[in-house]
Design a protein around this nucleic acid. Structure first.
Length: 164
DNA sequence: GCCAACGTTGGC
DNA sequence: GCCAACGTTGGC
């Protein structure tokens, strides 16, 4: 049995936020519009059903890990690539040889207290996350199991503090 | 709004 | 195949 893998998906909350995911039908959403080959390879080849996803809000006043999600459908051709009405439409796209891929993910949790970069930077494990690297703009990133556990633990800790 | 870092494009 | 120019990302 293969080990569960973990990922970080970046999204600008103005475009699509953790709340949007929670409110989606069945809490499930297609992750489309990825137009970077490295991220595409992850979606096409490595992201599997049941994998855990850290939902990261980028390009916003306070970038943060906002919650978690689960992969519910594995890589399949991204329909927006051949949709003339979509801003993600790829003019050179040949549907018989799909170039861009989507997965579906399902809402799992929203953190009461989002884990901001400041908080992550102060953590011995999480300061080493890929997303913390300067200039790192890959929108789908690998997350280590130790990092995943540390994120959930820290999120629980900060949430209980917020309740006091 | 600034700007560093990055990925892509296209001329050669 | 190189690499300069360009557009984009994304933290600050």
């Amino acid at each position: 049995m293969e080990r569960r893998r973990y990922w970080l998906f970046k999204s600008e909350p103005d475009e699509f936020s953790i709340d949007d995911l929670r409110r989606a039908p069945q809490g499930t959403q297609r992750w489309d519009g990825v137009r970077n080959y490295q991220a595409r390879n992850f979606l096409r080849d490595h992201v599997k059903i049941g994998d855990g996803v850290l939902f990261y809000h980028s390009s916003t006043r306070e970038p943060a890990v906002a919650g978690t999600a689960t992969i519910v459908r594995e890589g399949y051709p991204d329909p927006t690539a051949s949709d003339p009405g979509s801003p993600y439409c790829d003019e050179n796209h040949d549907p018989s040889r799909p170039r861009w891929y989507s997965v579906n993910l399902c809402f799992e949790s929203k953190f009461v207290t989002p884990l901001t970069r400041g908080v992550l930077a102060g953590h011995p494990v999480l300061s080493g996350m890929m997303v913390m690297r300067r200039g790192m703009r890959l929108s789908i990133q690998k997350v280590r199991a130790t990092q995943w556990r540390a994120v959930l633990k820290l999120a629980r800790k900060l949430s209980s503090k917020a309740d006091e």
